[in-house]
């Protein structure tokens, strides 16, 4: 439970933030293949404070999804250390809620039953039954109030992702891991869901790590943008986003926002000397 603060290289200088809920120190990840090992990540340091929204942006193959999976305890790091809430991650931690590019709903369960899956996993069917009110409340908040008893096939892609948001939040996780959660949706739906996500997360002390390809989306949602590059995957730089919250979509047109986007783009170009050939791991 020791939290050795001070050794945390967070990329941005002058740390006055509270103790990080996610801390990544000296993390590298190699994937063994039949030929040479693939170096997905090398020497990554990052800390995320409670309530902070951090986005990982970079070309395909820069290891941003791998980094998310390391924090989510789905992969062991080859070197270095990942901690959540001061405890080393040795498997999927209970403090984490995940969202994927696809909604990943179980077609044979109603929307409510899908949302309750994490509760059922932890507390059994009885626990899930007790949490029904909370599930319905969450579903109401994302505009799915009348769809609790429907099956995923009856919902549009956007509605399915809303249900997935509820499933992520039902266990009240401290850390949200978002792997391009709205990447498969059309632009308008995606914008709307980003706004809703920001609304839900802001004002809580939940930390969020978002993987995205979209610079505007990343800057809009984040307190910090972590720019990564490929081959080997590493952090190029971290851009602070000091725009006030809550943000509405108009902020996109302000000069401050444009400057930040330009800065991120510049950093991406900088780390772009070697284009990604294969997809993310």
């Amino acid at each position: 439970m020791s939290s050795p603060s001070g050794v945390l290289a967070t990329g941005s200088a002058g740390d006055t933030r509270p103790a990080p809920v996610v801390s990544i120190r000296g993390v590298s990840k190699r994937f063994a293949t039949t030929g040479d090992d693939v170096v997905a990540l090398t020497d990554v340091d990052l800390a995320v404070a409670p309530g902070e929204f951090v986005c990982l942006i970079g070309p395909s193959g820069c290891g941003k999804s791998t980094l998310l999976n390391l924090v989510g305890g789905l992969l062991p790091p080859t070197a270095g250390r990942v901690e959540i809430g001061g405890r080393p991650v040795t498997g999927p931690p209970s403090e984490v809620g995940m969202m994927f590019q696809k909604p990943v709903l179980l077609e044979w369960r109603t929307v409510r039953e899908n949302v309750l899956l994490p509760v059922e996993a932890r507390n059994g069917r009885k626990g899930a039954k007790a949490a029904r009110g909370r599930a319905d409340e969450l579903l109401g908040r994302v505009g799915l109030g009348e769809f609790e008893e429907r099956y995923p096939n009856e919902l549009s892609g956007g509605m399915q992702q809303r249900a997935a948001i509820c499933r992520m939040l039902i266990g009240d996780p401290d850390v949200l891991l978002l792997d391009e959660p709205f990447g498969a949706l059309d632009e308008l739906t995606r914008e709307r869901l980003n706004l809703e996500l920001a609304k839900i997360v802001s004002g809580t002390d939940k930390a969020a790590l978002l993987v995205t390809h979209n610079i505007i989306e990343g800057v809009f949602l984040s307190d910090r943008v972590v720019v990564m590059s490929a081959r080997p995957g590493r952090i190029v730089d971290v851009v602070d986003v000091p725009l006030p919250r809550p943000r509405c979509l108009e902020v996109v047109t302000t000069p401050e926002f444009t400057a930040l986007v330009a800065r991120v783009r510049e950093l991406l170009e900088l780390g772009h000397d070697d284009d990604g050939k294969d997809g993310d791991r």
């Binding site: 989510g72 789905l74 999927p92 994927f100 696809k102 990943v104 179980l106 996993a121």
Partner: peptide
Amino acid sequence: VDRDKATLFRSLRISRRKTFFKLQLPSAL
């Protein structure tokens, strides 16, 4: 079984036996 669904179950620390009945079997039906 869909890979993403398997990952979801893993991230929720659902036991192998429960994963069989709640995910694998329905997927196989």
